[in-house]
Design a protein around this nucleic acid. Structure first.
Lengths: 140, 140
DNA sequence: ATAGACCTTGACGTTGACGTCAAGGCAAGC
DNA sequence: GCTTGCCTTGACGTCAACGTCAAGGTCTAT
């Protein structure tokens, strides 16, 4: 499997795969003509990286999992370092959730405050205003 | 008030204030010697920017608020554009919270799975293993 | 008069995960 | 033999919000 095939199968680009290699995450055999050759193991490795990225891992965070697979383990999280990384990322995600929730509350508060100060020309507001006008100056 | 004073009062750096100016967010009077001169209005503006940033606004997102203040309104969110930005950011924050919660669930699932597969050398495990050893080879 | 603390503009560096070219080599079909 | 489509390396570009440094001007205190 050449780099274009792997990229297509993994739904990514050749540039990304070469970048992974430059970061020491992916390795490749070389054909006599210098082309990179990949097997199923590399495909699984790329998918592991993608899956971890999708749950908020940086490329560097995926390193323990890649190392784990490389040392022959069936799953990337069959190693202590991977478990530790899971724990650390979970803590990070929790911290992020807290900060984001606080930001959300703050934002909701500001929005409602601003809306209260400035009733804004919404339909309901218009109709209420119109009715008040009618009451003050009823049509003959 | 010169740029260093404003930076100190706002708890930021002169570089940041000049950057705001380069982005059209902050304006300054100039002393005869070319130094920037700021008043209380600029101080409030910087604080508004900082507050919005702290709840997840990009600098560009703060622009409507800055414009609103500049057009004479008391509060930065006394304008329709600011309200609209509030709404948009709230939607963004909500989307982010959803993605993060999903990532968290995924992470928790993976962690528990991995722990189940690999009981890991925790103290309890060690003690259980030791006891099993004792039972199989009791001391005389 | 000189040191020190401020200020000016300008320009390059940082971080992450690639995108986008450029210049050239290899292989297959017409 | 020529086009087409893949591949190679290398190097610069992207985005945000500044940090950091350079070279120089200004003001105050000693």
């Amino acid at each position: 499997m050449r780099i274009g095939d792997l990229a297509k199968r993994a739904g990514t680009t050749t540039r990304t795969l070469r970048f992974y290699e430059s970061q020491g995450l992916l390795s490749a055999q070389r054909s006599p003509n210098g082309y990179r050759e990949y097997g199923e193991e590399e495909f699984r490795l790329v998918r592991e990286i993608q899956m971890l990225q999708s749950i908020g891992f940086s490329l560097d965070d995926t390193r323990p999992f890649v190392e784990c697979l490389r040392t022959g383990h069936e799953s990337g999280d069959d190693c202590a370092d991977s478990i530790e990384t899971y724990r650390r990322k979970l803590a990070e995600v929790d911290a992020c959730l807290e900060r984001l929730s606080a930001a959300r509350e703050s934002l909701v508060g500001k929005l409602t405050e601003a809306l209260a100060r400035q009733p804004s020309p919404c339909e309901v507001g218009d109709r209420i205003a119109a009715r008040l006008d009618d009451e003050r100056a009823p049509q003959p």
